[in-house]
Amino acid sequence: MLFYEDFIKSINSKSNIEMKKIEKFSVEAKKIVSGAGIGIPLILAGFFQGYLAVNENVKVMPGVFALVFLFLGIKQLRTTFSYKVIIDTEKKILIGEKLVLSLADIDSCTLEEKKIGKNLQVVLDIITVDRKQIIIPLYMKNKERFVLIMRLLLDTKFFIKK
């Protein structure tokens, strides 16, 4: 796992980072391309099926396929483009799509490599004071900066698993 080792070395080589009041992290370009590469063809297939349903004396099956393809394509694009993680460094709050977490409520935060789906991904494994586990995959741009900010804000609660 050469990439993960290089990532750890680059994080350990940097000690001080200048933080803004609010740090925003959005999805990286590779994930945008793959998400759009799935969502756009699904939407186009939905439009084509809708065209077939209308032009062939309103058949039911192409209409159903049109609705399903359009729903899946729009959902894929929405999921891809709505990914964002925000850190409020003054209030020490981590905000995600369905997550609002005070950094004071974190018991431990571990940077590690976990298997998500078929691939190994670099993740932050967060355990809260009330023993809930939150896994944040690092799909974002500037993932190194995100980890450095979390390490500075959490200090002794932040660990790196090798």
Results as ranks from 00 to 15, higher is better:
128 T>C: 06
19 M>W: 02
31 K>Q: 10
97 E>A: 07
85 V>N: 06
149 I>T: 09
157 K>W: 03
122 V>T: 14
105 D>S: 12
37 G>P: 07
70 L>I: 13
66 A>K: 02
79 T>L: 08
9 K>T: 06
49 Q>L: 07
13 S>T: 12
96 G>D: 09
6 D>W: 00
24 K>N: 15
22 I>Y: 07
10 S>N: 13
72 L>T: 09
18 E>Q: 14
161 K>M: 08
85 V>H: 01
128 T>H: 06
26 S>D: 15
95 I>T: 14
15 S>Y: 04
142 N>R: 13
108 S>V: 05
111 L>S: 02
155 D>Y: 04
135 I>C: 04
45 A>D: 03
100 V>A: 07
68 V>E: 11
99 L>T: 14
56 E>A: 01
103 L>T: 09
135 I>K: 12
75 K>G: 02
113 E>G: 00
153 L>I: 07
2 L>D: 15
14 K>Y: 01
148 L>R: 03
15 S>P: 00
99 L>R: 12
37 G>D: 15
93 I>D: 13
41 P>Q: 04
59 K>W: 01
143 K>S: 13
134 I>P: 12
98 K>H: 11
103 L>N: 08
44 L>K: 05
79 T>S: 11
61 M>P: 00
126 I>A: 01
153 L>A: 06
49 Q>C: 11
6 D>A: 02
32 I>T: 03
120 L>A: 06
29 A>F: 10
132 K>S: 09
75 K>S: 08
87 I>A: 06
52 L>T: 08
162 K>Q: 13
73 G>M: 12
46 G>R: 06
116 I>P: 00
148 L>T: 02
88 D>A: 01
6 D>F: 00
73 G>E: 14
125 D>Y: 09
84 K>L: 08
20 K>R: 11
135 I>V: 15
110 T>K: 11
161 K>H: 08
162 K>S: 11
117 G>Q: 13
22 I>W: 03
118 K>M: 06
49 Q>H: 07
12 N>T: 12
88 D>K: 00
85 V>Y: 02
105 D>Q: 14
113 E>T: 04
83 Y>I: 10
38 I>Y: 08
90 E>N: 10
94 L>W: 08
65 F>E: 10
60 V>P: 01
124 L>K: 03
118 K>R: 10
37 G>K: 04
53 A>M: 14
53 A>Y: 05
92 K>Q: 15
89 T>N: 13
128 T>I: 06
109 C>T: 03
73 G>C: 11
136 I>N: 04
74 I>R: 04
4 Y>F: 12
53 A>P: 04
94 L>K: 04
69 F>I: 04
60 V>D: 08
108 S>L: 11
26 S>H: 08
19 M>V: 13
24 K>F: 05
23 E>Q: 05
45 A>E: 05
28 E>I: 01
30 K>I: 15
47 F>C: 09
124 L>G: 01
157 K>Q: 07
105 D>M: 09
141 K>L: 07
61 M>C: 00
36 A>W: 04
133 Q>Y: 02
63 G>T: 10
17 I>L: 12
69 F>T: 06
34 S>G: 01
144 E>I: 05
81 F>R: 05
101 L>Y: 05
